[in-house]
Amino acid sequence: MNILAGVLLIIIILLILYIVLLRYQFKSINRQLYRRLTKHTRQPVSVEFINHQLDELVININNCLKAEENLRLTCIREEKKFKELIADISHDLRTPLTAIKGYLQMLDNSELTKEQQMKLDVAAKYTRELEQLIAHFFEYSYLITTETELKPEKINLTNLVTECLAEEIPSLEEQNLPLCFDEPKTIFVLGDRESILRIIQNLIRNCKQHAREGIDVKLFTENEQAVLTFQNFVSENSELDAEKIFDRFYTGDKARSSSTGLGLSIVKILTEQMGGSVSAALEKGVLRLQVKFPLFCEEL
């Protein structure tokens, strides 16, 4: 009996030791995985304790990590190719457009019949739309291929929004789009003036393209941020998905061939570069676009 008890005791001690070693090894694997996540190392996971099942587990973990790394590198290469493609397209389109505009100007200075002038005006209208699309392509390709150097400064956002809206009033009146904007108290933000100006202009341009029954603009502060919202009824032909509206090339309006969806993508890129955020919501035919900027703090 004493021998049997001794054997059982030894077996129990060995099992406890085995379990302790397994627990130690699992902790080691967790530490290695955590290090890969936090320090972005590429070192494969290793084990010190010899166990067939544990070895297979580690091999599969390393295979998954390698596959994920290969996929990440592939995505980076594809993204780089896409950026280069956009940049090439935007540059290549400018040369023939310049020639088209030149010939249209020559025709406009010549003697034309009323019908010919009407056709020329239509051609000029679509040329201007094409020029705007190419400008969006060029701006987008520049933003995604170049590390833009921002110049953060104290900016009177209230004045900037008011000035941009005032410039667009004649154009909005031509489209029968009433503008509602109650100028708030002066709000200062910290950001790049040129970037904020382009954000506001793109938001206005988006409303002019898709709004109906007017535009409602609000500017206020919330949680130490300046919040700028553009709200409008959208066209009945729109099939918008608010969660995708800031994605590149997304457009929910199938009836408009002149919309690339790049304008709001540019808004998102510029806003996030300055530490802000964007969001969109669609409820009962009303689209609300919201952009948040960091407030300017005097102690900065």
Rank of each mutant, 00 (worst) to 15 (best):
D192R: 03
G102K: 04
G275N: 05
N70W: 01
R31K: 15
L262G: 08
Q231F: 00
L21G: 01
T260F: 08
A5H: 09
P44A: 05
Y103A: 08
K151V: 13
E111A: 14
V20C: 09
I19F: 12
L240E: 07
L37Q: 11
A280V: 05
G263R: 02
T41Q: 09
Y250K: 10
K125I: 05
P96W: 09
S141T: 06
E224S: 09
R205F: 06
K83M: 10
E272Q: 11
E298D: 13
I11E: 04
T148Q: 13
I11T: 13
S265W: 08
K39W: 09
L21S: 09
I10M: 08
I11G: 00
R212D: 06
T41G: 12
L9R: 11
A123Y: 05
A99P: 00
K119V: 13
I3S: 04
Y142I: 07
E131F: 00
E69W: 07
L97N: 02
L172I: 05
K80V: 14
L14T: 11
E222P: 01
F233R: 11
E222S: 12
K154A: 06
L54V: 08
A87I: 04
Q231G: 00
E84Y: 07
N202C: 05
T148F: 01
S258F: 09
N62I: 10
D182S: 14
V286H: 02
C164M: 11
E48I: 06
E298Q: 12
L228M: 07
A5K: 11
Q43V: 15
D192E: 05
A242I: 08
I19P: 01
I13N: 05
E56V: 11
K154R: 14
T127W: 02
G261S: 04
L190A: 04
N70M: 12
F230S: 04
S235N: 12
L262V: 10
E272F: 04
L150H: 02
L295Y: 01
V189T: 02
V217L: 06
P96I: 12
G275D: 07
K80M: 13
L295E: 00
D241A: 10
Q25I: 08
R31V: 08
T41M: 03
L287N: 04
I12A: 14
L57C: 07
E194Q: 13
F188N: 07
S90T: 09
A135Y: 06
T146H: 12
C207E: 01
L9A: 12
H91I: 13
V161F: 04
T251M: 04
L85E: 10
I86K: 07
N60K: 11
L157C: 03
L197W: 01
Q290N: 12
Q175P: 01
T221E: 11
L15I: 15
K119Q: 15
E115L: 13
E69D: 15
L130W: 00
E298I: 13
V227D: 00
Q132T: 14
Q117Y: 07
Q273M: 14
I12E: 03
K114L: 12
Q175E: 12
N2F: 06
F181T: 06
I144L: 11
Y103L: 14
K114A: 14
Q53A: 15
Q117F: 05
I3N: 03
I215M: 01
Y140N: 10
